[in-house]
Design a binder for these strands. Structure first.
Lengths: 342, 342
DNA sequence: TACTTTCGTGTAATCGATTACATAAAACTT
DNA sequence: AAGTTTTATGTAATCGATTACACGAAAGTA
């Protein structure tokens, strides 16, 4: 195994100083052409590789940007990341990804890891809002690392975000269920400290009120975003005196679980019961009983986040612009909620 | 914004040297208890954060390990990563993830990024075998960064790998289709430079021969792992003089595409046509017409890879053990290939 | 020819932490 | 009290690269 080659090794071999080597390799115009060529040729011959760590220590920049998401095995997050990569790649940035598994402790650690690795920016979808992780966020801001939230955001002065209009998404889905004739519409929501869930919930509520339906506290279930959780939630709902005849779920996974449980109980969809989800995960389209869902244009969200980051980086410490980009949700109506043929 | 605080700042404030501060913070036993306490208290008060980059430059270690996969939006890779994280997390390692999007150029860049970031190890599933990326791999080995392959591996002396017995997986799936009465079994394969596809192919072939069926070149389609590709492949197969009556696909996504295309053509599954996939992606189970698939125990694969890494790290440059772990595949038989009721 | 620019390179500080070695002060021997 | 050991801390090199400043040599100017 060849040992690590540094500019000092090259300098020694050529009887010049490391400074000259450094300048030659960086195409400093002050260097004589002959010297530059010689250095470059020698560096190649010795298999020299620049130590990026030393460079990062000196320059304070790494050309890496970090992305933190709750988890990567959802098409939504994977697609956002894809969008970020597409946009940032031509600018010479590498993207490194961390997942929190919905744990705030992990989120803290991820934030520290990325800051420690001296990434040039962090784009993230927060796992939860809590005092616990405040210091980690403060650390990011104090170190002046550009931070951008996408989808699940946190209110911090001066921090930009790219989200969708979740209120509208919730409203659209619920309105659609009402239009299909559902009258007792339940809702699966999530952690209320997160705006996305709160706003989808509010949109749901507003749609009910706007259409003369009363809001029933019992119909709202706070659940995790998983198939199992969806099953359990249906189980609870069906024990009510007046069970619902539809569900608007803030999660496609929970919606899928709900459908599975309903089928098991021989409740037919969509004639007896309608279901709509959120995120437009690919499987919602694949199922024979395809699932109605709200699309969040994740690719666009990722690209947009990256663009906001790039703008921010250019305007270094001149003015801090806080940009709030809000994308429009799009309802994809499918079999799970279509009574009238189309 | 508070400026960056270094050990020199702390030293200055306390009228001692940075060396003492460093030792106090690292619990060096030579430091007087009073001094240690004072330093620690002052550091906290000044909001000191250790610069991990400087530490990494000095020590050559970062406590980060890198994972490179073709893509993250498949349950298989996401689960392997999950397994790696579970195993490595208690040992104080952070995991950073890069995806290649099946591009060898990206793979190169990812390898360099991780080595440059001085990760303590790289665990990866290779995107392709080509001369193009040889230098990137050589770079990793020359820098003595532990490298471990999982699932898709490359033959490099001294490099450990964790894979499944793909031959057996292919054999099991094909044998099952034969047992269900299929006689003209097609196969979707992938890049033949990758062992996983080659071996699944070989397993498929062997199962045919062992059961008195002849191998038909026309029945083998080399396709990407996507729903679209699966559809196109079925289109080709159905144009043959004797179209097949079953498909063993090396990819669940292509299998799904195949099923969709077959349904569109009103070919009923499983009575007229059977399908089996590979990877046991969650959707194979969720579908009303659930899909038979070969499970690769991704969680176990990830954990095992991490364990192999840990062993390797401990035995620093003493002996290089090349470990080849091969896990057993498990066939999950579902509706897409079950003619006999069970 | 004497003086000023320009050119090409060297010197040394810097980024922030760790650590082998040196050393002064304190504690212990006898 | 003189010598030895221990303790706590300081000094300075190191990791690998960049860069402001310095300086001798070559080229240009009058």
């Amino acid at each position: 195994m060849s040992e690590k080659v540094t500019i000092y090794d090259i300098a020694e071999k050529l009887n010049i100083t490391a400074a000259t080597v450094s300048r030659a390799l960086n195409n400093n115009p002050k260097i004589k052409e002959a010297t530059r060529e010689l250095v470059i040729k020698t560096a190649a011959a010795m298999n020299y590789k620049q130590n990026k760590l030393a460079l990062a220590l000196k320059s304070g920049r790494s050309n890496n940007i970090g992305v933190i998401v709750p988890r990567i095995d959802s098409n939504f997050f994977a697609s956002v990341i894809r969008g970020i990569e597409e946009e940032l790649y031509p600018h010479g940035y590498q993207v490194i990804i961390c997942q929190t598994h919905e744990s705030i402790k992990r989120e803290n650690e991820n934030l520290h890891t990325l800051v420690d690795a001296q990434v040039d920016g962090i784009m993230m979808s927060v796992t939860g809002i809590s005092d616990e992780n405040d210091s980690a966020f403060r650390n990011v801001l104090e170190k002046n690392v550009p931070l951008i939230f996408f989808d699940r955001s946190k209110h911090i002065d001066g921090v930009s975000s790219v989200t969708i209009n979740d209120f509208k998404g919730g409203y659209l889905a619920t309105k659609h269920l009402i239009d299909e004739g559902c009258r007792n519409i339940a809702h699966f929501s999530g952690d209320q400290s997160l705006d996305i869930f709160k706003n989808r919930f509010l949109g749901y509520k507003q749609a009910l009120l706007d259409n003369g339906l009363s809001f029933n506290e019992e119909y709202v279930i706070f659940t995790k975003s998983s198939v199992e959780a969806g099953k359990d939630a249906v189980d609870k709902l069906l024990q009510l005196q007046t069970p619902p005849d539809a569900i608007f779920s803030s999660s496609d996974f929970a919606a899928l679980g709900a459908i599975q449980e309903l089928k098991e109980r021989n409740i037919s969809i969509p004639s007896e019961f309608c279901v709509a989800g959120f995120s437009n995960e690919p499987f919602t389209k694949f199922m024979e009983l395809s699932i109605t869902s709200v699309d969040q244009s994740p690719l666009e969200m990722g690209r947009m986040s990256a663009r906001v980051f790039l703008e921010q980086v250019d305007k270094t410490d001149t003015i801090k612009i806080e940009k709030k980009v809000v994308l429009a949700p799009e309802l994809h109506i499918r079999k799970s909620s279509t009574r009238t043929n189309f």
